[in-house]
Design a binder for these strands. Structure first.
Lengths: 130, 130
DNA sequence: CTGTATCCCACGCGATACTG
DNA sequence: CAGTATCGCGTGGGATACAG
């Protein structure tokens, strides 16, 4: 889909993704969306799906497991009929918010510069090999 | 390594990596290592290789191209014999430093919490399926 | 010295189907 | 409702070889 598109449809931005190395072990493609939701209030599984329509079940499950394993979110099973599950952000998770926001803010501030740099670079490239 | 640094198994640092979404288009597996080097002084290609022994030629080239395309680093060809190339960080690149440091600092501060959370999570998992 | 060209594999993620 | 199971694909990136 979008290549030069830093925003999702809610005007949000995303960072980071998979693979090895430190924060890669903490964050994945959908982590920030989930974090954004859970920072505002606890959410049930399908609430999250509704809030982030593009995510698949599998990916959401994976994201939540990863965040849970890293102590960023909490999973609370509510024994009702039928079973309900509630996800909440932990204190540790809250401390992640600021660093991430700083990064996101940088991205927002400089996305124009970056796109300009890309255009310039790509143009030079085209001009060089017709 | 002049850094406040969370480590992987080899004592190194890193965030972010590949795939789609904004910063993924800016940073890859080795970007931070390169940035750290270039923040201190301009570097030649093989200087960077020596400074970051684990990176392959291909990956370093790719990282540098990506950072160059995004206006984070500059590539200066020095017409000498044999050809020399110098990489320097740009003003835009310097603005990336702070946000990244904030993230790295978070990671450093909370890596213990994360590891503890993981151990707890994994233990519960093991206990559940013997 | 500074790259480019291939080959190849691992893994993140989506699509789809099934379950308690 | 809240997942798990399977499959296949795209892509990052390591290894290796070659080139200006």
């Amino acid at each position: 889909m979008p290549d030069t598109a830093p925003h999702d449809e809610h005007g949000e931005i995303a960072i980071s993704a998979p693979h090895r190395e430190l924060l890669d072990h903490v964050l994945d493609k959908w982590s920030l969306h989930v974090l954004n939701e859970l920072c505002e209030r606890p959410n049930r599984f399908n609430e999250l799906r509704r809030a982030i329509p593009e995510v698949t079940q599998k990916s959401l499950t994976g994201t939540l497991r990863r965040l849970e394993r890293n102590g960023i979110v909490e999973r609370a099973v509510i024994s009702s009929r039928p079973v309900a599950v509630e996800y909440r952000i932990t204190p540790l998770g809250k401390t992640l918010r600021h660093p991430v926001d700083v990064l996101l803010e940088w991205a927002t501030t400089h996305i124009g510069d970056i796109e300009h740099a890309r255009a310039t670079f790509d143009d030079a490239d085209d001009g060089a090999r017709p």
